[in-house]
Design a protein around this nucleic acid. Structure first.
Lengths: 233, 233
DNA sequence: GAGTGGTCTAGACCACACG
DNA sequence: GTGTGGTCTAGACCACTCA
């Protein structure tokens, strides 16, 4: 496998960064220098540098130059996968038990979070996801009916809310938080865990361009679930 | 502010995706069509599409075309910031209490994780970070002496391990997990919390090109800390 | 074979930073 | 003014997919 020219330049610079040729914050070769060194056009060098910048390895400033990144903050990717796919990809059986699937009137706090009037109609589902028969996630979700009118018609033993929403709406933005806390009494019962067992709780709000599509609280027994991430330049 | 041509094309496609012009998985305009439509060169169209691909909004296949992304997995950025910077940026006071700062012999399990011989010398620090006097994080860290020989000389009441390591080593790769669990008895004592209080535990291994630089366990009281993320196309 | 994206060239003009 | 990166052009050749 012969690397493309832009990839060779990237690799050369990555090697130098890993070897400490350029200390964090140090000035790196200019585009013109790399053009001369590698005998390629400036667009090719530019692509290599732009990708290194996108990966957070270098910082570039017009008029100043390209600098080795000061890696004081590592920004990394956390993949929030559809749980169904995640379980199946492990070769295990996924089963969803639907506890609630109905329209409700939104309490004031919920309405505010969804950007609706207090008392407006919202769709509510409460589903417990099992992996090989063991409860893994309690998914408590509210959906803005305007964004997905047919949401309640889905059969959530055969598909997942995430899948339905992604098929019927255009995702625009998502906010989430991850925290550790104790489950509610109901969640503890549904997950079959002790009332004080630590749980990993993800709260996620998903937006279309102008409206909140859905608000979800995903509760996982701490002993059975963890998020993993990997960061590679 | 007039957008550059490539940015205009990106925005046009983003608007269409948000408006549902192309359903997830649907075929989008080819580069040639966009060239004709916008009256720009193919490199410019290519840049717009390549950036949308990098952002996860479209999928591209040579010979097939460009497709609206099936957003079944949302990959999002979680910024793992240096805690000192995070606290200061909130305008609060950061104080670090150093409990342990010494060289030790690595137990077999630890040595394996660091890629060292059992019994090899490792640097060990245990530091409790406070925000405005309240314990926020218990940082238990082991460092490979070969990667940062001067690690133990640092004054960790004035700087942080993260900062020292980023200044003296070339970060190459990091793996981490996030989970909820109860603190150890020692952690509960240091954080001033109950033995059964749920904690958010981050475990992170950081690699240089060929070696493990450091292994860290970061324990946060669940009630006082949460990770936040935001995903925007 | 026709259409797609992947990559590259050899120029060009511009905005910006610095001495 | 000189050097830097930011952007763009109008071509080109290639590998891949599908009919």
């Amino acid at each position: 496998m012969v690397l493309a020219p832009y990839a060779r330049i990237k690799q050369h610079l990555k090697d130098g960064l890993a070897a400490g040729t350029w200390a964090p914050g140090a000035l790196m070769p200019s585009e013109a220098e790399l053009v001369a060194q590698f005998g390629v056009s400036r667009m090719t060098v530019n692509r290599a540098l732009k990708e290194l910048q996108a990966e957070g390895l270098v910082e570039r400033s017009q008029g100043l130059g390209t600098f080795a990144a000061r890696l004081h903050l590592v920004s990394s990717t956390l993949t929030l996968r559809d749980l169904h796919e995640e379980i199946e990809s492990r070769g295990h059986a996924h089963r969803a038990v639907v506890q609630v699937q109905r329209a409700e009137k939104a309490a004031p706090a919920l309405a505010a979070q969804l950007g609706l009037r207090s008392g407006a109609r919202v769709f509510h589902t409460l589903i417990v996801h099992h992996e090989n028969g063991v409860p893994l996630q309690c998914e408590d979700r509210y959906v803005n009916p305007a964004c997905s009118p047919g949401y309640l018609d889905a059969d959530f033993t055969r598909t997942t809310p995430t899948q339905v929403l992604f098929e019927t709406t255009a995702l625009w933005r998502a906010q989430y938080t991850v925290q550790a806390s104790a489950p509610t009494a109901q969640e503890a019962r549904l997950l079959g865990i002790a009332a004080r067992e630590p749980c990993l709780v993800l709260t996620r709000r998903t937006f279309s361009r102008d409206a909140v599509i859905t608000l979800a609280r995903l509760v996982h027994p701490g002993a059975r679930y963890q998020l993993q991430g990997d960061f590679q330049p």
